[in-house]
Computed example of a mutant assay.
Amino acid sequence: MQLARFPRRRYTLSQTPIERMEHLSGHLGGAQLYVKRDDLLGLTSGGNKTRKLEFLVAEALKQRADTLITVGAVQSNHCRLTAAAAVREGLKCRLVLEQRVPGSYRADASGNNFLFDLLGVEKITVVNAGDDLNAAMEAERQALAAEGRTGYIIPGGGSNAIGSLGYAACAEEILQQGFDMGLEFDRVVVASGSGGTHAGLLVGFNANSAGLPITGINVRRPAAEQEANIHALTAQIADYAGVAAVPREAVVCRDEWVGPGYSLPTDEMVEAVRMFASLEGILLDPVYTGKAAAGLIGLIRAGEIGRDERVLFVHTGGSPALYAYQPILSGAAAAQ
């Protein structure tokens, strides 16, 4: 892929590390587990959206925007990082927050909500699940235009063809690191939400003929719906980047660990978050990586991931949201 032809800002100065998780591997008694530490990407508290924003913000600057507009859930990592990118570039930021769980937004909440305020978000508009999010963002863009300003709309999760280039590039980074480490992975496991990370990796690996399967662990939608969404997005990315299309059979999503719904806690998520922290010193978030790690653990325990497999877990960040879930994740709560 010739990704250098696309405008890009750089918010991370080097590759994120790939680390062996020896204690977790030993504890689970199966598979050699590694983690791609994209929680260590640049911008405030890191996370996968940083890679997407490198391409999206470059496009916004190309269009001479002065304000970034985006949407996310009430504890959105994407919204936090979009606000941080705006600060880095001297831009303003407006957020549309979707209450996917009724009554879940609190202006005084901890976690990412607190960081929205600390990062100086200009305006927050709260809408309910099922509302037209694109219309809400467009209303903000038009309000800015009426003031003589230029807003640039970034879709939820930064998951369009432009933003997803960040993870097509990450796929190449992983392959290069594996080569340098003398390490060939058998499988990649990653959270599958808005889809740009999952789809971007699929396009990147496919364009490099890597033959490396990816298992997406759903955090919101049923498997069939999510697989259709991911495959459609891979087609958009591949067309935009000018590379081969991803075959439908390469798109694998698992929905057994979603639980009662998006952002709603499960016992498996709590176990995974505490296990990664106590065995590897790695913080996961309760919405995305916690449920993805629960899926990884579940697949190992079920024997679907073999004992000799070398598995790379892509850590997409999100640890600030932990602090909004402290009553659920604390040792006392977990013991009940």
Results as ranks from 00 to 15, higher is better:
residue 274 R to H: 08
residue 157 G to M: 03
residue 274 R to V: 01
residue 241 A to P: 00
residue 232 A to S: 13
residue 59 E to R: 14
residue 314 V to H: 10
residue 187 R to V: 11
residue 123 K to A: 13
residue 204 G to E: 09
residue 112 N to F: 08
residue 241 A to G: 07
residue 37 R to H: 03
residue 122 E to T: 14
residue 219 V to Q: 04
residue 288 Y to I: 11
residue 163 G to D: 08
residue 127 V to S: 02
residue 269 M to I: 05
residue 164 S to Q: 05
residue 42 G to Y: 04
residue 152 Y to I: 06
residue 182 G to L: 08
residue 86 A to M: 03
residue 84 A to I: 02
residue 211 G to N: 06
residue 144 L to S: 03
residue 117 D to N: 12
residue 313 F to N: 11
residue 10 R to I: 12
residue 312 L to R: 07
residue 173 E to P: 01
residue 132 D to Y: 06
residue 60 A to G: 05
residue 211 G to C: 07
residue 88 R to H: 12
residue 21 M to A: 14
residue 284 L to C: 07
residue 266 T to M: 10
residue 19 E to P: 00
residue 81 L to W: 02
residue 216 G to E: 11
residue 72 G to F: 03
residue 50 T to L: 06
residue 30 G to T: 15
residue 183 L to H: 07
residue 256 E to F: 03
residue 135 A to R: 13
residue 175 L to S: 08
residue 87 V to P: 00
residue 28 L to Y: 05
residue 124 I to P: 01
residue 211 G to W: 04
residue 117 D to C: 04
residue 222 P to S: 07
residue 246 V to G: 09
residue 198 H to L: 11
residue 309 E to P: 00
residue 252 V to C: 12
residue 298 G to M: 06
residue 222 P to L: 05
residue 7 P to Q: 11
residue 275 M to N: 00
residue 40 L to F: 09
residue 181 M to Q: 15
residue 292 A to H: 05
residue 31 A to C: 10
residue 46 G to R: 09
residue 266 T to H: 05
residue 32 Q to C: 06
residue 195 G to M: 10
residue 203 V to N: 06
residue 328 I to L: 14
residue 23 H to S: 14
residue 19 E to W: 03
residue 30 G to I: 01
residue 300 I to W: 01
residue 187 R to H: 09
residue 240 Y to A: 13
residue 31 A to N: 03
residue 173 E to G: 11
residue 118 L to V: 15
residue 286 P to A: 10
residue 155 P to V: 14
residue 125 T to A: 12
residue 307 R to Y: 01
residue 213 P to A: 11
residue 165 L to C: 05
residue 305 I to T: 08
residue 91 L to C: 05
residue 270 V to I: 15
residue 54 E to V: 08
residue 213 P to R: 05
residue 239 D to H: 10
residue 162 I to E: 08
residue 186 D to L: 09
residue 71 V to K: 04
residue 191 A to P: 00
residue 16 T to M: 09
residue 94 R to G: 04
residue 253 C to T: 06
residue 173 E to W: 10
residue 301 R to A: 14
residue 237 I to W: 02
residue 80 R to C: 09
residue 132 D to F: 06
residue 5 R to I: 13
residue 50 T to D: 10
residue 40 L to Q: 15
residue 278 S to D: 12
residue 157 G to S: 03
residue 29 G to W: 07
residue 145 A to K: 09
residue 237 I to N: 03
residue 63 Q to S: 11
residue 129 A to E: 14
residue 149 R to L: 06
residue 279 L to K: 13
residue 200 G to Q: 10
residue 202 L to R: 08
residue 233 L to Y: 02
residue 35 V to T: 07
residue 49 K to P: 01
residue 162 I to M: 13
residue 171 A to Q: 11
residue 252 V to S: 13
residue 270 V to S: 11
residue 47 G to M: 07
residue 10 R to Q: 13
residue 207 A to F: 03
residue 109 A to M: 09
residue 226 Q to Y: 02
residue 198 H to I: 10
residue 197 T to L: 08
residue 321 A to E: 04
residue 180 D to L: 15
residue 298 G to Q: 06
residue 44 T to S: 13
residue 100 R to E: 08
residue 224 A to H: 08
residue 278 S to H: 07
residue 260 P to A: 14
residue 306 G to Q: 14
residue 29 G to T: 12
residue 222 P to K: 10
residue 16 T to P: 00
residue 256 E to D: 13
residue 230 I to A: 05
residue 89 E to H: 02
residue 19 E to R: 12
residue 130 G to R: 09
residue 309 E to T: 03
residue 193 G to M: 08
residue 335 A to D: 11
residue 65 A to W: 01
residue 120 G to P: 00
residue 313 F to P: 00
residue 122 E to Y: 01
residue 161 A to T: 04
residue 35 V to I: 15
